[in-house]
């Protein structure tokens, strides 16, 4: 049976290859920092499921220290020139989209069908992880089609992956680090403290005040935790259920459905939501690290107000 472990091994192989390419590139002034960083990250994918937690923790610390104090550099990858790319674009035309669209297309197909496939009574894939496994398989298929079609040098995908990962740099690991921080926050009860502070210091004497405190609280706590999922149970148990539902008689279904969306408005405004807001900055090579957040705030704030109004008018029908 294919499980998530299979995808982790693929990631490990990719990152190990990137580390290797870095180790062989004398043009990069930070050659060994890059090698160590991507090599350690590769090890977490390849061996993470079997390593003792403390060793994994030390590995994470080592990666952090390399990136934080030594810094990562950019090597030189053998790639094509702008003129070669224009010529190639001319030659291949719309066929270039085939591998690109195979990734989402096959992921979708796999998500819908692989759950039901079994070989000799054993299911082919772990049904709970079917989307991620399909994504991995779709990527392999798209890579095979791309290689067969374009016939680049065999190491080209690795060099290209390395070129792109170098532009992203340590930001590639930040979303995973922040998710880990969220787990530590949850362990230490950070959310409960915030909810307690809110209910103690904010006057919540009317339904509107309570709804507004809940909506704004969801957005703020989501901004701090980087994730609406972590904020939701805390704020809903702290404000929504006892006050809005318990005292003022609001509809818990409406409140919690829209409350989660108020949290999403916070996600749009938080650097803690690195995979949505910081990773694209790196991927799109933007000089201002807050560029995406700034583009989102003028939508997030009015939408938060709309969410609060919707809760107020729909929950007390």
């Amino acid at each position: 049976m294919l499980s998530l472990e299979f995808i982790y091994q693929l990631m490990g192989v990719l990152l190990g290859g990137v580390a290797l390419v870095n180790a062989r590139d004398a043009a990069n002034p930070r050659r060994w920092s890059n090698t160590a960083f991507w090599g350690l990250y590769a090890a977490s994918f390849l061996f993470g499921s079997w390593l003792p937690a403390r060793v994994s923790g030390a590995l994470v610390l080592a990666m952090t220290l390399v990136a934080g104090f030594r810094g990562l550099g950019q090597g030189r990858s053998p790639t094509t020139s702008p003129a070669e790319r224009r010529a190639s674009a001319e030659r291949w035309g719309n066929r270039l989209y085939l591998p690109a669209l195979l990734v989402p297309g096959l992921t979708l197909l796999g998500t819908l069908t692989l759950k039901r496939v079994s070989l000799g009574g054993v299911p082919l894939v772990d049904a709970r992880q079917v989307t991620l496994i399909s994504l991995g398989l779709a990527t392999l298929a798209a890579l095979a089609v791309g290689m067969a079609m374009l016939r680049p040098p065999p190491a080209a995908p690795l060099h290209e992956a390395r070129r792109l990962l170098d532009t992203v740099g340590w930001a590639a690991v930040l979303p995973q680090m922040l998710a880990s921080l969220g787990a530590l926050f949850a362990l230490a009860g950070v959310g409960q403290v915030v909810a307690e502070l809110t209910t103690r210091w904010v006057p919540l004497e009317t339904p509107l005040a309570a709804v507004a405190a809940y909506g704004i609280g969801m957005a703020l706590l989501t901004m701090l935790m980087g994730n609406a999922f972590a904020a939701f149970p805390v704020m809903t148990a702290g404000i929504a259920l006892p006050l809005i539902v318990g005292r003022f008689g609001g509809d818990p279904v409406v409140i919690s459905a829209i409350g989660m969306l108020a949290g999403f408005c916070g996600t749009l405004m938080s650097p803690m939501a690195a995979n949505f807001n910081l990773v694209p900055v790196a991927l799109l090579e933007l000089p201002d690290e807050n560029a995406v957040i700034k583009a989102q705030i003028p939508t997030a704030l009015p939408l938060l107000a709309v969410n609060i109004a919707l809760m107020y008018f729909l929950a007390f029908r």
């Binding site: 070669e84 790319r85 190639s88 591998p99 690109a100 080209a156 995908p157 290209e160 792109l164 990962l165």
Partner: peptide
Amino acid sequence: LPVIGLLERAG
């Protein structure tokens, strides 16, 4: 990334 990079390389 390998797929995207490969296609960027090809224009």
